[in-house]
């Protein structure tokens, strides 16, 4: 169980990105974080693996305080938390296999890895991950030769290599078109259901939210302003919607009930 307690982040320039945020995530949940851009979604996700140092507050994972971990402990925590990014963040000039293998860096011996040597078992694991995401035949291509959807699958494969208990996904589909968005989120859903990996994902498309989320948190100006289940999302009132997205925001496509197959461009 992941427990966020009174988390506050103030950046060096004085921007308050998170304000006293508290919530719990049970193992196996698919938690989606929504909110306008600038509301603090990325900051929240990055605080969990401390790519961003929290200013105050605690993050407890199965009782261990991540915010108090020293460098070695932090690395051990990080390798159990996979992360995927909006911009994929692959090393463009390296090939797909190498990119995927970097997911093992937290486990392998440093000296070996500096020589680009990985144990055979890890290489097999990498091919299995690529297989699972349907891009095995791309293994020896340079990462930047792949399409956006393929690159994000490499990103997932890299996270998978960590054998993670949690995956943090920061707007994983915002750079992809809607059809690809579904295929990426379906991969995450499968991992969530079959491997019982907890997923924390920030999203922009609201109908993707109701399709995949088991629970939803709404952020505005660094504060939690909405908290609901998948059913709650379907029943979200205009008032709740405006509370998250502001008074000027308009819900496109007339309500959120109904299929996801329709217009995917109900972006906020």
């Amino acid at each position: 169980m992941l427990e966020i307690k009174n988390l506050t982040k103030v950046y060096a320039d004085g921007t308050v990105a998170l304000r006293d945020v508290s919530f719990k995530v049970e193992d196996g949940e698919f938690l989606i974080i929504i909110g306008l851009s600038g509301s603090g979604k990325s900051t929240l996700l990055r605080c969990i693996n401390r790519l961003v140092e929290p200013t105050t507050g605690q993050i407890l994972w199965d009782g261990q305080d991540i915010t108090a971990a020293d460098q070695t402990e932090l690395r051990h925590i990080r390798r159990k938390i996979g992360m995927i990014f909006q911009q994929f963040n692959l090393v463009n000039r390296s090939n797909v296999l190498t990119n995927v293998l970097t997911g093992r860096l937290g486990y392998v011996k440093q000296r070996q890895s500096l020589l680009h040597r990985f144990p055979q078992a890890d290489r097999e694991l990498a091919f299995k991950a690529l297989d699972r995401l349907g891009i095995r035949d791309q293994a020896y291509k340079r990462a930047d030769e792949l399409s956006g959807g393929q690159q994000q699958r490499v990103g997932i494969a890299r996270a998978l290599m960590q054998e993670p208990h949690i995956i943090l996904a920061d707007e994983p589909v915002a750079s992809l078109d809607p059809v690809l968005a579904h295929s990426i989120l379906e991969h995450l859903e499968v991992l969530n259901q079959e491997e019982e990996i907890t997923v924390l994902c920030s999203l922009h498309y609201i109908d993707l939210v109701q399709r995949y989320a088991s629970r939803v948190i709404g952020l505005r100006d660094g504060e939690i302003v909405y908290h609901g289940s998948r059913e709650d999302i379907r029943r979200m009132t205009d008032a709740e919607f405006k509370n998250i997205y502001g008074q000027e925001a308009v819900r496109v496509g007339g309500g959120l009930e109904g299929s996801v197959g329709g217009s995917d461009d109900k972006t906020i």
């Binding site: 693996n49 790519l51 690395r75 051990h76 925590i77 990080r78 390798r79 159990k80 938390i81 996979g82 992360m83 990014f85 911009q87 994929f88 963040n89 692959l90 090393v91 463009n92 000039r93 390296s94 190498t98 970097t102 997911g103 093992r104 860096l105 937290g106 486990y107 440093q110 890895s113 500096l114 990103g155 890299r158 290599m161 960590q162 943090l168």
Partner: peptide, 25 residues
């Protein structure tokens, strides 16, 4: 800096990060 962040998030050490995220670039 994206790849640097990504490699750091895997639990890699600083040296590994330099080797895999900085040097190829």
């Amino acid at each position: 800096t994206g790849p640097i962040e990504a490699i750091e998030a895997t639990g890699a050490t600083r040296l590994q990060m330099i080797m895999y995220a900085v040097i190829p670039q």
